[in-house]
């Protein structure tokens, strides 16, 4: 096997492993990705990894995929990104497909239905619990807490598509910047 093929294979195996064994998605995956690509393999320096992570979080799409694409690109160019991304996705694709094919029959089982009755409110709690910490790390304070409140009112209660929220937020951020720039000019 050529060196290049070996490097592609290594990229594939690292991200396949991450896709197959990390539960909880994005934020739970970050320390594991870091362990693989910074500590174990030294593919990127820690500082660059943190900068890259900031961009992966600001871009749209799943954070884990964005990180995989970035590391792959850094290692082996566009094809490297492609290999990493595909490797990350394959395990969940296969697992969920199997579940999707059998869950319908499975759910008709009385015991399974009771299991799900317990799990459903727990799912909501698991989404709600990290909110406080997330708010803190996003610098939500007394001055800007109206923003998430308005978002909740529009999305959860008035069924507004989140796409408008995203576009509106970007426009608002840019307008705010222009406004500050104008004040500084005076």
């Amino acid at each position: 096997m050529t060196d290049k093929a070996k490097q592609y294979l290594e990229l594939f195996l690292v991200f396949f492993k991450l896709g197959a064994f990390t539960f909880g998605g994005g934020y739970a995956m970050i320390p594991l990705i870091r362990n693989e690509v910074v500590s174990k393999r030294n593919w990127v320096e820690d500082e660059e990894f943190m900068e890259m992570l900031a961009l992966a979080q600001s871009a749209p799409g799943p954070i884990s995929l964005n990180t995989a694409l970035f590391i792959g690109n850094k290692r082996m160019g566009f094809k490297g990104g492609l290999v990493s991304g595909i490797a990350l996705i394959i395990p969940s694709f296969v697992i969920i497909l199997i579940i999707a094919m059998f869950l319908v029959k499975f759910k008709e089982n009385a015991v399974v239905e009771r299991v799900f009755k317990g799990i459903r409110p727990a799912v909501v709690a698991l989404i709600a619990a990290p909110l406080y910490m997330l708010g803190k790390s996003a610098n939500v304070n007394k001055k800007n807490i109206w923003i998430p409140i308005v978002v909740v009112a529009l999305v959860a209660f008035l069924s507004v598509s989140p796409i408008y929220i995203i576009i509106g937020s970007i426009v608002l951020g840019l307008l705010h910047f222009l406004y500050i720039k104008k004040i500084h000019k005076r």
Binding site: S58, R120, P121, V123, V124, I127, A128, P130, L131, L134, G135, A138, N139, V140, N144, I147, P148, I149, V150, V151, V152, V155, A156, F157, P162, I165, I166, S169, I170, L172, G173, L174, H176, F177
Partner: peptide
């Protein structure tokens, strides 16, 4: 600056994800 408001709005989107799932079926 384009992302400054968006980062804060994302907290609202996650809160909405939880609230949207509070219904007669899950509770």
């Amino acid at each position: 600056s384009a992302l400054s408001v968006l980062k804060i709005a994302v907290v609202g989107l996650i809160a909405s994800a939880a609230i949207l799932l509070i219904d007669d079926y899950n509770f």
